[in-house]
Design a protein around this nucleic acid. Structure first.
Lengths: 178, 178
DNA sequence: CTCTGCATTCAGAACGTTTTGAATGCAGGG
DNA sequence: CCCTGCATTCAAAACGTTCTGAATGCAGAG
Protein backbone atom coordinates (compact mmCIF):
# COMPACT_ATOMS: atom_id res chain seq x y z
CA UNK A 1 0.00 0.00 0.00
CA UNK A 2 1.26 3.48 -0.86
CA UNK A 3 2.91 5.15 2.09
CA UNK A 4 0.71 8.22 1.88
CA UNK A 5 -2.44 6.15 2.15
CA UNK A 6 -0.99 4.49 5.21
CA UNK A 7 0.03 7.81 6.70
CA UNK A 8 -3.38 9.36 6.15
CA UNK A 9 -5.10 6.36 7.62
CA UNK A 10 -2.97 6.37 10.71
CA UNK A 11 -3.18 10.08 11.38
CA UNK A 12 -6.94 10.02 10.92
CA UNK A 13 -7.29 7.10 13.30
CA UNK A 14 -5.21 8.74 15.97
CA UNK A 15 -7.02 12.00 15.37
CA UNK A 16 -10.30 10.25 16.03
CA UNK A 17 -8.81 8.82 19.20
CA UNK A 18 -7.87 12.28 20.33
CA UNK A 19 -11.27 13.66 19.45
CA UNK A 20 -12.95 10.88 21.38
CA UNK A 21 -10.87 11.68 24.47
CA UNK A 22 -11.79 15.30 24.08
CA UNK A 23 -15.47 14.42 24.12
CA UNK A 24 -15.10 12.21 27.14
CA UNK A 25 -15.10 8.85 25.39
CA UNK A 26 -12.29 6.39 25.57
CA UNK A 27 -9.45 6.72 23.14
CA UNK A 28 -9.92 3.17 21.90
CA UNK A 29 -13.53 3.90 21.00
CA UNK A 30 -12.36 6.77 18.86
CA UNK A 31 -9.71 4.72 17.14
CA UNK A 32 -12.13 1.92 16.39
CA UNK A 33 -14.50 4.46 14.95
CA UNK A 34 -11.70 5.86 12.82
CA UNK A 35 -10.70 2.44 11.49
CA UNK A 36 -14.27 1.61 10.61
CA UNK A 37 -14.85 5.02 9.08
CA UNK A 38 -11.95 4.59 6.69
CA UNK A 39 -12.88 1.10 5.65
CA UNK A 40 -15.11 0.81 2.59
CA UNK A 41 -16.09 -2.66 3.77
CA UNK A 42 -17.75 -3.52 7.06
CA UNK A 43 -15.25 -4.99 9.51
CA UNK A 44 -15.42 -7.98 11.81
CA UNK A 45 -14.31 -7.88 15.43
CA UNK A 46 -11.23 -9.85 14.43
CA UNK A 47 -10.41 -7.41 11.67
CA UNK A 48 -10.67 -4.49 14.07
CA UNK A 49 -8.66 -6.24 16.78
CA UNK A 50 -5.81 -7.11 14.45
CA UNK A 51 -5.84 -3.65 12.91
CA UNK A 52 -5.42 -1.93 16.28
CA UNK A 53 -3.47 -4.75 17.94
CA UNK A 54 -5.76 -4.91 20.92
CA UNK A 55 -7.66 -7.80 22.46
CA UNK A 56 -10.87 -8.98 20.94
CA UNK A 57 -12.59 -8.57 24.29
CA UNK A 58 -11.88 -4.89 24.28
CA UNK A 59 -13.05 -4.58 20.70
CA UNK A 60 -16.29 -6.32 21.53
CA UNK A 61 -17.10 -4.01 24.42
CA UNK A 62 -16.03 -0.83 22.70
CA UNK A 63 -17.93 -1.58 19.53
CA UNK A 64 -21.07 -2.16 21.52
CA UNK A 65 -20.54 1.18 23.17
CA UNK A 66 -20.12 2.79 19.75
CA UNK A 67 -23.32 1.10 18.69
CA UNK A 68 -25.20 2.44 21.71
CA UNK A 69 -24.00 5.91 20.80
CA UNK A 70 -25.20 5.49 17.25
CA UNK A 71 -21.65 5.79 15.96
CA UNK A 72 -21.46 2.34 14.43
CA UNK A 73 -23.97 -0.13 13.09
CA UNK A 74 -23.98 -3.86 12.85
CA UNK A 75 -24.13 -5.18 9.31
CA UNK A 76 -25.45 -8.60 8.51
CA UNK A 77 -23.44 -10.54 6.00
CA UNK A 78 -25.25 -13.46 4.41
CA UNK A 79 -23.89 -16.79 5.37
CA UNK A 80 -21.46 -15.34 7.90
CA UNK A 81 -21.60 -15.98 11.59
CA UNK A 82 -19.21 -13.16 12.38
CA UNK A 83 -20.42 -9.75 13.42
CA UNK A 84 -19.58 -6.95 11.07
CA UNK A 85 -19.68 -3.27 11.87
CA UNK A 86 -19.58 -0.16 9.80
CA UNK A 87 -19.13 3.37 11.11
CA UNK A 88 -21.96 5.85 10.96
CA UNK A 89 -20.37 8.25 8.50
CA UNK A 90 -23.02 10.93 8.73
CA UNK A 91 -21.30 13.29 11.14
CA UNK A 92 -24.43 15.23 11.76
CA UNK A 93 -26.19 12.11 12.90
CA UNK A 94 -23.35 11.39 15.31
CA UNK A 95 -23.45 14.88 16.72
CA UNK A 96 -27.16 14.68 17.20
CA UNK A 97 -26.86 11.39 19.03
CA UNK A 98 -24.29 12.69 21.44
CA UNK A 99 -25.72 16.14 22.03
CA UNK A 100 -29.24 14.83 22.20
CA UNK A 101 -28.61 12.27 24.88
CA UNK A 102 -25.55 12.86 26.98
CA UNK A 103 -25.10 16.59 26.82
CA UNK A 104 -28.75 17.42 27.11
CA UNK A 105 -29.19 15.12 30.07
CA UNK A 106 -26.26 16.80 31.76
CA UNK A 107 -27.71 20.25 31.25
CA UNK A 108 -31.18 19.33 32.41
CA UNK A 109 -29.78 17.72 35.53
CA UNK A 110 -27.79 20.81 36.35
CA UNK A 111 -30.82 23.03 35.91
CA UNK A 112 -32.79 20.79 38.17
CA UNK A 113 -30.18 20.82 40.91
CA UNK A 114 -29.90 24.59 40.71
CA UNK A 115 -33.67 24.97 40.86
CA UNK A 116 -33.76 22.79 43.95
CA UNK A 117 -31.12 24.96 45.54
CA UNK A 118 -33.10 28.11 44.97
CA UNK A 119 -36.12 26.46 46.47
CA UNK A 120 -34.19 25.32 49.53
CA UNK A 121 -32.86 28.81 50.09
CA UNK A 122 -36.28 30.37 49.80
CA UNK A 123 -37.85 27.85 52.14
CA UNK A 124 -35.21 28.50 54.76
CA UNK A 125 -35.37 32.26 54.51
CA UNK A 126 -37.57 32.83 57.52
CA UNK A 127 -35.41 30.68 59.75
CA UNK A 128 -32.14 32.42 59.07
CA UNK A 129 -30.13 34.78 61.23
CA UNK A 130 -29.17 38.13 59.78
CA UNK A 131 -25.75 36.88 58.82
CA UNK A 132 -27.05 33.69 57.28
CA UNK A 133 -29.54 35.72 55.30
CA UNK A 134 -26.77 37.74 53.80
CA UNK A 135 -24.98 34.57 52.77
CA UNK A 136 -28.18 33.12 51.35
CA UNK A 137 -28.55 36.22 49.26
CA UNK A 138 -25.02 35.80 48.01
CA UNK A 139 -25.70 32.18 47.10
CA UNK A 140 -28.80 33.19 45.18
CA UNK A 141 -26.81 35.62 43.07
CA UNK A 142 -24.14 33.06 42.20
CA UNK A 143 -26.76 30.44 41.47
CA UNK A 144 -28.61 32.81 39.19
CA UNK A 145 -25.44 33.21 37.14
CA UNK A 146 -25.08 29.47 36.87
CA UNK A 147 -28.68 29.13 35.86
CA UNK A 148 -28.31 31.57 33.03
CA UNK A 149 -25.28 29.69 31.79
CA UNK A 150 -27.15 26.42 31.72
CA UNK A 151 -30.22 27.95 30.18
CA UNK A 152 -28.00 29.29 27.46
CA UNK A 153 -26.54 25.87 26.92
CA UNK A 154 -30.00 24.37 26.80
CA UNK A 155 -31.18 26.82 24.17
CA UNK A 156 -28.05 26.33 22.12
CA UNK A 157 -28.52 22.57 22.18
CA UNK A 158 -32.15 22.80 21.24
CA UNK A 159 -31.33 25.15 18.41
CA UNK A 160 -28.75 22.82 16.95
CA UNK A 161 -30.86 19.73 17.43
CA UNK A 162 -33.93 21.46 16.10
CA UNK A 163 -32.36 22.51 12.85
CA UNK A 164 -30.94 19.05 12.45
CA UNK A 165 -33.23 17.98 9.68
CA UNK A 166 -32.24 20.71 7.31
CA UNK A 167 -28.51 20.69 7.92
CA UNK A 168 -26.31 19.36 5.20
CA UNK A 169 -22.62 19.80 4.98
CA UNK A 170 -22.55 22.28 2.19
CA UNK A 171 -24.82 24.49 4.17
CA UNK A 172 -22.98 24.24 7.44
CA UNK A 173 -20.17 26.48 6.37
CA UNK A 174 -22.68 29.20 5.65
CA UNK A 175 -24.03 29.59 9.16
CA UNK A 176 -24.52 33.15 10.21
CA UNK A 177 -25.76 35.07 13.15
CA UNK A 178 -28.48 37.47 12.23
CA UNK B 1 -25.21 27.29 60.02
CA UNK B 2 -28.68 26.46 58.72
CA UNK B 3 -28.84 23.01 57.18
CA UNK B 4 -30.25 24.28 53.91
CA UNK B 5 -27.34 26.64 53.44
CA UNK B 6 -24.99 23.75 54.03
CA UNK B 7 -26.92 21.52 51.66
CA UNK B 8 -26.95 24.11 48.90
CA UNK B 9 -23.27 24.76 49.34
CA UNK B 10 -22.38 21.13 49.16
CA UNK B 11 -24.53 20.30 46.16
CA UNK B 12 -23.21 23.30 44.28
CA UNK B 13 -19.64 22.35 45.04
CA UNK B 14 -20.11 18.80 43.88
CA UNK B 15 -22.03 20.04 40.86
CA UNK B 16 -19.07 22.19 39.92
CA UNK B 17 -16.84 19.15 40.32
CA UNK B 18 -19.05 17.23 37.96
CA UNK B 19 -19.13 20.06 35.47
CA UNK B 20 -15.36 20.32 35.56
CA UNK B 21 -15.00 16.61 34.82
CA UNK B 22 -17.42 17.02 31.97
CA UNK B 23 -15.27 19.74 30.47
CA UNK B 24 -12.11 17.72 30.85
CA UNK B 25 -10.75 19.39 33.96
CA UNK B 26 -10.06 17.62 37.19
CA UNK B 27 -12.85 17.21 39.66
CA UNK B 28 -10.86 18.91 42.41
CA UNK B 29 -10.40 21.99 40.26
CA UNK B 30 -14.14 22.21 39.87
CA UNK B 31 -14.77 21.80 43.57
CA UNK B 32 -12.23 24.43 44.47
CA UNK B 33 -13.88 26.76 42.02
CA UNK B 34 -17.25 26.00 43.59
CA UNK B 35 -16.00 26.69 47.10
CA UNK B 36 -14.45 29.96 46.07
CA UNK B 37 -17.50 30.94 44.06
CA UNK B 38 -19.76 30.57 47.08
CA UNK B 39 -17.51 32.44 49.42
CA UNK B 40 -18.14 36.17 49.74
CA UNK B 41 -14.60 36.55 51.04
CA UNK B 42 -11.43 35.61 49.22
CA UNK B 43 -10.01 32.35 50.56
CA UNK B 44 -6.49 31.33 51.52
CA UNK B 45 -4.95 28.05 50.46
CA UNK B 46 -5.39 26.79 54.00
CA UNK B 47 -9.05 27.77 54.01
CA UNK B 48 -9.61 25.89 50.79
CA UNK B 49 -7.66 22.85 51.92
CA UNK B 50 -9.54 22.53 55.18
CA UNK B 51 -12.85 23.11 53.45
CA UNK B 52 -12.34 20.26 50.99
CA UNK B 53 -10.18 18.15 53.33
CA UNK B 54 -7.40 17.74 50.82
CA UNK B 55 -3.70 18.44 51.04
CA UNK B 56 -2.41 21.95 50.72
CA UNK B 57 -0.06 20.86 47.96
CA UNK B 58 -2.96 19.82 45.82
CA UNK B 59 -4.78 23.07 46.53
CA UNK B 60 -1.73 25.07 45.54
CA UNK B 61 -1.37 23.34 42.19
CA UNK B 62 -5.05 23.31 41.35
CA UNK B 63 -5.56 26.95 42.21
CA UNK B 64 -2.72 27.89 39.92
CA UNK B 65 -4.36 25.90 37.18
CA UNK B 66 -7.62 27.73 37.83
CA UNK B 67 -5.73 30.98 37.66
CA UNK B 68 -4.18 30.05 34.30
CA UNK B 69 -7.65 29.31 32.99
CA UNK B 70 -8.90 32.67 34.19
CA UNK B 71 -11.30 30.98 36.58
CA UNK B 72 -9.81 32.39 39.75
CA UNK B 73 -7.81 35.44 40.64
CA UNK B 74 -5.31 36.15 43.33
CA UNK B 75 -6.34 38.86 45.75
CA UNK B 76 -3.84 40.82 47.75
CA UNK B 77 -4.79 41.36 51.35
CA UNK B 78 -2.93 44.15 53.08
CA UNK B 79 -0.58 43.02 55.77
CA UNK B 80 -1.13 39.35 54.98
CA UNK B 81 1.54 37.02 53.70
CA UNK B 82 -0.96 34.39 52.70
CA UNK B 83 -2.26 34.05 49.19
CA UNK B 84 -5.96 34.67 48.76
CA UNK B 85 -8.06 33.67 45.82
CA UNK B 86 -11.49 34.58 44.62
CA UNK B 87 -13.42 32.85 41.86
CA UNK B 88 -14.11 34.62 38.59
CA UNK B 89 -17.87 34.79 38.92
CA UNK B 90 -18.58 36.10 35.45
CA UNK B 91 -19.54 32.89 33.71
CA UNK B 92 -19.17 34.40 30.27
CA UNK B 93 -15.65 35.36 30.99
CA UNK B 94 -14.93 31.81 32.02
CA UNK B 95 -16.54 30.35 28.94
CA UNK B 96 -14.65 32.72 26.71
CA UNK B 97 -11.37 31.77 28.34
CA UNK B 98 -11.93 28.08 27.84
CA UNK B 99 -13.45 28.19 24.37
CA UNK B 100 -10.97 30.77 23.18
CA UNK B 101 -7.88 28.83 24.11
CA UNK B 102 -8.37 25.14 24.51
CA UNK B 103 -11.31 24.38 22.28
CA UNK B 104 -10.24 26.63 19.48
CA UNK B 105 -6.73 25.23 19.48
CA UNK B 106 -8.15 21.74 19.25
CA UNK B 107 -10.34 22.62 16.28
CA UNK B 108 -7.59 24.42 14.40
CA UNK B 109 -5.24 21.52 14.91
CA UNK B 110 -7.80 19.08 13.57
CA UNK B 111 -8.40 21.22 10.50
CA UNK B 112 -4.70 21.39 9.86
CA UNK B 113 -4.24 17.63 10.13
CA UNK B 114 -7.15 17.03 7.80
CA UNK B 115 -5.80 19.54 5.31
CA UNK B 116 -2.44 17.79 5.37
CA UNK B 117 -4.17 14.51 4.69
CA UNK B 118 -5.95 15.86 1.65
CA UNK B 119 -2.68 17.20 0.36
CA UNK B 120 -0.93 13.87 0.88
CA UNK B 121 -3.64 12.06 -1.00
CA UNK B 122 -3.53 14.47 -3.90
CA UNK B 123 0.24 14.32 -4.14
CA UNK B 124 0.19 10.54 -4.23
CA UNK B 125 -2.57 10.30 -6.78
CA UNK B 126 -0.38 9.70 -9.80
CA UNK B 127 1.57 6.93 -8.09
CA UNK B 128 -1.41 4.82 -7.10
CA UNK B 129 -2.68 1.58 -8.53
CA UNK B 130 -6.30 1.41 -9.62
CA UNK B 131 -7.34 -0.16 -6.36
CA UNK B 132 -5.40 2.28 -4.23
CA UNK B 133 -6.96 5.10 -6.17
CA UNK B 134 -10.42 3.89 -5.29
CA UNK B 135 -9.44 3.78 -1.61
CA UNK B 136 -7.90 7.24 -1.80
CA UNK B 137 -11.16 8.50 -3.22
CA UNK B 138 -13.03 6.93 -0.34
CA UNK B 139 -10.66 8.54 2.16
CA UNK B 140 -11.20 11.93 0.55
CA UNK B 141 -14.95 11.63 0.98
CA UNK B 142 -14.71 10.70 4.64
CA UNK B 143 -12.17 13.43 5.27
CA UNK B 144 -14.39 16.01 3.59
CA UNK B 145 -17.15 15.09 6.05
CA UNK B 146 -14.79 15.55 8.96
CA UNK B 147 -13.65 18.87 7.59
CA UNK B 148 -17.23 20.09 7.41
CA UNK B 149 -17.75 19.13 10.99
CA UNK B 150 -14.71 21.00 12.19
CA UNK B 151 -15.46 24.02 10.06
CA UNK B 152 -18.88 24.10 11.62
CA UNK B 153 -17.32 23.93 15.05
CA UNK B 154 -14.90 26.68 14.16
CA UNK B 155 -17.65 28.98 12.99
CA UNK B 156 -19.75 28.26 16.04
CA UNK B 157 -16.80 29.09 18.29
CA UNK B 158 -16.00 32.27 16.44
CA UNK B 159 -19.60 33.31 16.62
CA UNK B 160 -19.76 32.86 20.36
CA UNK B 161 -16.39 34.45 20.96
CA UNK B 162 -17.13 37.29 18.59
CA UNK B 163 -20.26 38.33 20.40
CA UNK B 164 -18.30 37.92 23.56
CA UNK B 165 -18.50 41.42 24.94
CA UNK B 166 -22.04 41.09 26.12
CA UNK B 167 -22.82 37.61 25.03
CA UNK B 168 -26.53 37.65 25.23
CA UNK B 169 -28.23 34.37 24.82
CA UNK B 170 -30.73 35.75 22.44
CA UNK B 171 -28.08 35.71 19.75
CA UNK B 172 -27.45 32.01 19.66
CA UNK B 173 -31.09 31.28 19.17
CA UNK B 174 -30.89 33.14 15.92
CA UNK B 175 -28.27 31.02 14.27
CA UNK B 176 -29.53 30.07 10.89
CA UNK B 177 -28.47 28.14 7.87
CA UNK B 178 -28.58 30.07 4.67
C1' DC C 1 -26.14 -34.29 21.01
C1' DT C 2 -21.74 -32.75 20.21
C1' DC C 3 -18.49 -29.99 17.90
C1' DT C 4 -16.93 -25.70 16.23
C1' DG C 5 -16.38 -21.00 15.79
C1' DC C 6 -17.57 -17.04 17.23
C1' DA C 7 -19.05 -13.22 20.82
C1' DT C 8 -19.23 -11.85 25.50
C1' DT C 9 -17.98 -11.36 30.23
C1' DC C 10 -15.19 -10.27 34.10
C1' DA C 11 -11.36 -10.87 37.54
C1' DG C 12 -7.03 -9.52 37.69
C1' DA C 13 -3.13 -6.99 35.61
C1' DA C 14 -1.40 -2.99 33.59
C1' DC C 15 -1.53 1.51 33.11
C1' DG C 16 -2.26 6.47 33.75
C1' DT C 17 -3.69 10.09 36.71
C1' DT C 18 -4.15 12.51 40.98
C1' DT C 19 -2.98 13.14 45.76
C1' DT C 20 -0.15 13.31 49.52
C1' DG C 21 3.36 14.98 52.54
C1' DA C 22 8.10 15.74 53.32
C1' DA C 23 11.63 18.57 51.50
C1' DT C 24 12.68 22.82 49.62
C1' DG C 25 12.38 27.62 48.43
C1' DC C 26 11.32 32.20 49.49
C1' DA C 27 10.28 36.61 51.71
C1' DG C 28 9.36 39.59 55.54
C1' DG C 29 10.25 40.67 60.44
C1' DG C 30 13.07 41.13 64.19
C1' DC D 1 21.57 37.07 59.51
C1' DC D 2 18.52 33.99 61.31
C1' DC D 3 13.69 32.68 62.20
C1' DT D 4 9.11 31.96 60.96
C1' DG D 5 5.33 31.14 58.18
C1' DC D 6 3.91 30.44 54.12
C1' DA D 7 3.88 28.51 49.04
C1' DT D 8 5.69 25.28 45.92
C1' DT D 9 7.60 21.10 44.19
C1' DC D 10 7.97 16.31 43.32
C1' DA D 11 8.77 11.33 44.37
C1' DA D 12 6.16 7.88 46.02
C1' DA D 13 1.65 6.07 47.02
C1' DA D 14 -3.17 5.71 46.29
C1' DC D 15 -6.51 5.51 43.31
C1' DG D 16 -9.36 4.90 39.25
C1' DT D 17 -9.74 3.40 34.63
C1' DT D 18 -8.99 0.40 30.79
C1' DC D 19 -7.23 -3.78 28.83
C1' DT D 20 -6.30 -8.55 28.59
C1' DG D 21 -7.19 -13.29 28.16
C1' DA D 22 -9.18 -17.32 30.06
C1' DA D 23 -13.68 -18.93 30.99
C1' DT D 24 -18.19 -18.99 29.53
C1' DG D 25 -22.20 -18.64 26.61
C1' DC D 26 -24.47 -19.37 22.44
C1' DA D 27 -25.97 -20.88 17.91
C1' DG D 28 -25.54 -23.37 13.73
C1' DA D 29 -23.71 -27.57 11.37
C1' DG D 30 -23.14 -32.26 11.12
Amino acid sequence: MHKNLVAVNSSTVSGMGRLARFFGFSEVMGRLYGIALLSPEAMSLDDLASELKISKGSVSMNMRALERWGMAKEVWVRGERKKYYKAESDMWQVIRNVLGSREQREVLLALQVLGDSVEKLQLAESELSAEELKLAQYYLERIADLQSFFKFAQIALETILGSAESLDFEAITKIEIQ
